[in-house]
Amino acid sequence: MSTLSQDEEKLVPEGRIERVDGDYVLAFDRQLDYPHTYIWSLLAEKDNVAKWLGTLDADWELGRTYELVLGGGMSSGTVLQLNPPLSLQITWEDELGQESVIEWRVLESDGGTLLQFRSRAEGPEFLTEGSAGWQTILDALAEVAAGRRPDTEIDRWTPLREAYSRLYQLSHSMGTVESDSGHTCVRFERLLDAGRDRVWAALTEPEMLGAWLGPGRVELQAGGAVEFNLPGQTVSGDVEYVLAGSRLDYTWTAPEGTGTVHWMLEPEDGRTRLTLVHNLGRETSAGSLMARWHMRLDALATMLGGGQVHDSAHRREALARFYQRFQPA
């Protein structure tokens, strides 16, 4: 994958994230110097949709369900409104069961087209990821409109995801696969609605650990024992480094593989930015591990918010399928 140039590192969010009637709304407004009927054809005809978004099983039809294959994943839903050549509204359900309502409006403006995009969802999960994703998709649409092939070699999504998180003070949801000193690792970063002391306690105190991760203990000293009794497996390890309230590293030995876990906590406007990096042994499946950590970190946020943690086998299986595509070759 190519690295970003100096100009590309300046990528900034073009979308707006708003709260409307308790929902989260992502909004983009793009002025394009092409006739609105031409932009509508890119939006509405499945052969054109394939050039910038994904493979649609058929042209949009009012009341009809659809399936769309894109970027290794899949979305499905129903066409709620279809008013050629002005507007299209659809439900959008991803492979994890997250559902939103998406609307496109194609309006004549200043001799060209004002393209309006709105995505409305009940919660903030995957909002930073979705915002970055839709901005790159709109960039691809603009490239196709200009008669060019979208550039997929440069990673614009990662810096945009971070920019949306910082600008709107929203937590990432997805984990990512990275390389650390030549070794594969998985990384999660979550912005938690709790002070650093409380998050530290959740990582180290047996009663709180049991509420989101599983029964266990962490001896807070170099060489101290680490033990967790997780569903279907026991994890053991040794503490490698402790900086109270900020940093905790320990080895991780489980039936599914070995590795090293690194926790880092940073205060941020009354909340805590938690970073988890799990370095993997060769035998460990990154996809399976990411699904497990995603659910455990969701549980941590729920527990810190005073909610009751409820695990879902369906959710776990969906996450496992989702993250399997990130398994290194």
Rank of each mutant, 00 (worst) to 15 (best):
258 T>V: 14
128 T>C: 15
315 R>D: 03
327 Q>S: 13
95 E>Q: 10
64 R>Q: 14
152 T>R: 12
81 Q>L: 13
200 W>C: 10
272 T>H: 06
320 A>V: 07
153 E>S: 15
119 S>D: 14
284 T>M: 14
77 G>L: 07
112 G>M: 04
224 G>I: 09
295 M>R: 09
269 D>G: 04
98 Q>Y: 15
230 L>Y: 06
33 D>A: 15
38 Y>W: 02
307 G>H: 07
192 L>W: 08
328 P>K: 01
173 S>H: 15
111 G>K: 06
159 P>M: 02
133 G>I: 02
62 L>I: 04
168 Y>V: 05
77 G>D: 07
158 T>I: 00
37 T>W: 05
83 N>G: 03
155 D>N: 13
60 W>H: 06
53 L>C: 08
70 L>G: 01
129 E>D: 14
146 A>I: 00
174 M>R: 09
239 V>K: 05
141 L>A: 08
243 L>M: 10
242 V>F: 14
117 F>E: 01
62 L>Q: 12
115 L>R: 04
292 R>P: 00
194 A>D: 05
188 F>R: 04
268 E>Y: 08
293 W>P: 01
243 L>K: 12
131 S>W: 00
77 G>I: 06
209 L>R: 03
326 F>A: 08
219 E>A: 14
112 G>H: 03
237 G>H: 08
96 L>V: 10
198 R>L: 12
114 L>Q: 13
129 E>K: 03
64 R>I: 06
290 M>E: 01
286 A>D: 09
101 V>R: 09
146 A>C: 02
96 L>H: 06
263 W>R: 01
105 R>M: 14
48 N>S: 11
279 N>Y: 13
329 A>L: 13
289 L>Q: 06
87 S>M: 11
198 R>Y: 01
82 L>D: 04
288 S>L: 13
133 G>V: 02
325 R>A: 15
106 V>L: 10
274 L>Q: 01
309 V>L: 11
163 A>L: 01
98 Q>E: 08
259 G>Q: 05
127 L>D: 02
150 P>W: 03
